[in-house]
């Protein structure tokens, strides 16, 4: 276990280093490359001395390396600055939107795992049959389909033609302000406040975006499930079980799937970055008020601090999740240790 412990410690130590590397990258992109936040903040009628003052107030007149240190220092204290557009702290804007994204992502992940494991298991069980081919092709299709096309077609068919689900947003207007956001995850908040009508409404809003996003992610899980099941199915205890005449589907559920499930779940965790990337487009397609829509809106408003804040938050989340899944993976699969 000594090596495992060393790996975990090394991986944890690497975490802040990776965060700082990404922060530096964000700084380089947003501050060093050309672009002028001041002209965005101030309207056409601002006198030049106001422009100069603001420049100073924002610290944009200082040398770059000082700006860099200021920037790192502030972020490490959890200060993302003031949104140029909304004129309120970026942190206050980010948090509820991040929770919205989290809610969508978690649901999408559940759908992805359900879909991916089912298809993958089916493929492995019926190896080299038509079913295997179909499930693999569905997997390939899920890599190739743009999530916004899937989303728009769902909106057209399920939303416009059939009227089953609302085509956008997170909650119907009539429920706005009718419950207190305690956790920020509306599904939980509405449940604990006993507002099942709102719960159903929120769930209906989530169905289409979560399914679209879940399908995109399911491909990787589908492949992983098939692969690890095939590996397990070749193992001796399975062969032994087969020799004892246990039916194939029981072998699959009782022996193989159980052995393969934990690595599959860990790998699902590793798709987190993919999930967040997909969420940006999904949120935008469904006008879902998450971190992704916020990033894109802030880009249209050229709200530098907001863009920076959103990306930094993404970076921190990704590094944390990656570290956790890497460590978990190391527990399962001893080969990954360096």
């Amino acid at each position: 276990m000594a090596t495992l412990r060393t790996y975990v410690i090394a991986r944890l130590l690497l975490m802040p280093v990776m965060v700082i590397t990404l922060l530096t990258l964000v700084f380089i992109i947003l501050r060093v490359l050309p672009g002028d936040p001041v002209s965005v903040i101030l309207g056409p009628k601002a006198p030049p001395e106001v422009v100069e003052e603001l420049r100073k107030a924002l610290g944009l007149d200082k040398p770059l390396h000082i700006q860099y240190i200021d920037y790192l220092g502030k972020i490490l204290h959890g200060d993302f600055g003031l949104s140029y557009y909304w004129k309120i702290p970026v942190r206050d804007l980010l948090w509820p939107r991040f929770l919205a994204t989290l809610e969508l992502s978690l649901l999408a992940m559940v759908i992805a795992i359900a879909l991916g494991v089912t298809l993958g298991a089916l493929g492995a069980l019926k190896r080299n049959t038509v079913i295997d081919v179909v499930t693999r092709l569905i997997g390939v299709a899920s890599y190739a389909v743009p999530v916004f096309l899937l989303g728009l077609m769902m909106q057209l068919i399920l939303g416009v033609y059939l009227g089953l689900f609302p085509i956008s947003g997170r909650i119907s207007s009539e429920y706005i302000g009718q419950f207190r956001p305690i956790t920020g995850l509306y599904l939980i908040d509405t449940l604990i406040q006993g507002r099942l009508d709102i719960f159903v409404d929120v769930l209906k809003h989530l169905v289409m975006p979560a399914t679209a996003l879940g399908f995109i992610i399911s491909g990787v899980i589908n492949r992983m499930t098939r692969q690890s099941l095939l590996e397990v199915l070749d193992k001796e205890f399975i062969i032994a079980a087969r020799a004892r005449g246990i039916p194939e589907d029981r072998i699959l559920t009782k022996y193989a799937l159980r052995n393969a499930l934990i690595p599959i779940l860990t790998i699902a965790g590793m798709q987190f970055a993919l999930l967040l990337a997909g969420a940006v487009l999904t949120e935008s397609t469904f006008s879902y008020p998450g971190l992704g829509t916020f990033l894109v809106t802030s880009v249209t408003y050229r709200d530098y601090n907001a863009i920076q804040g959103a990306i930094v938050l993404y970076a921190i989340v990704v590094v944390i999740v990656n570290t956790i899944t890497d460590i978990l993976y190391a527990f399962i699969d001893p080969r990954v240790r360096y």
């Binding site: 416009v160 006008s287 829509t293």
Partner: peptide, 21 residues
């Protein structure tokens, strides 16, 4: 009076037709 902010015009139209707004 509740003012609800939408991100795209299609969503606004749908919401109007369904009388969410």
């Amino acid at each position: 009076i509740i003012i609800k902010f939408f991100r795209d015009a299609s969503a606004l139209r749908m919401a109007l037709e369904k009388r969410e707004v």
